[in-house]
Simulated scan of single mutants.
Amino acid sequence: MIDNFDRDAFVTAVLDEDLLGGSDVTSEAVIPPGTRFQAVMDSRDIAVVAGMEIAEAFFRRLDPDVEIERLIEDGAHVPAGTNLMRLTGKARAMLTAERSALNTLQHLTGIATMTRHYVEAIEGTGCILLDTRKTIPGLRALEKYATRMGGAQNHRMGLWDAAMIKDNHVAVAGDVATAVKRAADAGIADIIVEVDRIDQIEPALRAGATHLLLDNMDVPALREAVALVDGRVPTEASGGVTLDTIHDKAATGVTYISVGRLTQSAPAADIGLDYAAA
């Protein structure tokens, strides 16, 4: 189960987008009623799979009697050419659901796969990879589920679960200390503070910051910041992190490193559904 995600509502909305209250005119014109279809879904890429249960739900919605053999579970790291599931059911229903199922599985698997690359890049540093709120509107719960399948931890799920004081909050409040003190005075337990200069660290900590986001700092600045914080609160490197730079930044001793591109820029995995002869 995925927290804060209504699978039935999602499946309904996605199918409605394709059908718009009508029908699959191609399948109804080309395929006689009652025709059966056997298919295999496979990954044409090396991939970390995410979204199998949701993909199945599209087929089951249109054909409750469809037979599905799931061959791979979410989180599995598979080589190219791996069969993910076998299906037998009504041809019209299966082909109508195909695109919705594949789009979802391809997108989530792409996120999980990119996430795994970043996790592998920081192995041995002791640093933990985090995702961000940079998600496609309406898909946050799914995309953050996919990052978990890839090995990351979820950061904030929304605006409600922790304060994150960023540069614009500081600009309106006047300075870092004032912004943090106001959050602390409001009784907020978790106060994440974005700092982009070393001289902001002590004022933020004195005012009650419980987590420092070290924004767009290079490796020497990150090392200096980590030494100054000296374990008083968790530290997080963020901003412009790529596969080429993540290891060196993670090795500075930061607790976490967050990467927006996991959900912003992951390419879809190449997954297909093909006719399988009996």
Rank of each mutant, 00 (worst) to 15 (best):
N4C: 13
R7H: 02
D8G: 02
F10C: 02
T12M: 06
L15S: 01
L19C: 05
S23P: 09
P33W: 02
P33E: 08
G34P: 04
R36S: 15
S43P: 03
R44M: 10
I46K: 07
V49L: 05
G51E: 02
E53T: 11
E56Q: 12
A57W: 04
F58D: 05
R60T: 10
L62V: 12
D63K: 15
I68G: 05
I72Y: 03
T82N: 00
L84M: 01
R86Y: 12
R86N: 12
L87C: 11
G89E: 05
G89L: 13
M94S: 12
M94L: 14
T96R: 11
A101I: 09
G110R: 03
R116V: 02
A121F: 10
E123R: 14
G124I: 08
C127L: 08
I136Q: 13
P137A: 14
L139S: 08
A141E: 07
L142V: 06
Y145I: 06
Y145M: 08
G151Y: 01
Q153C: 14
M157I: 14
M157E: 15
D161L: 15
A162W: 12
A163F: 08
M164H: 11
I165N: 06
N168H: 09
V172R: 03
A173S: 02
G174Y: 01
A177N: 02
T178N: 00
T178F: 01
A179R: 01
I191W: 05
D196A: 11
I201C: 09
A204M: 11
L213Q: 14
P220G: 07
A227F: 07
R232N: 03
T242V: 12
L243S: 10
L243E: 05
T245V: 11
I246L: 10
D248V: 13
D248N: 12
T252G: 11
V254C: 09
V254F: 10
L262V: 12
S265K: 10
A266T: 11
P267Y: 01
A268H: 09
A268P: 01
A269V: 06
A269H: 06
I271S: 04
L273K: 05
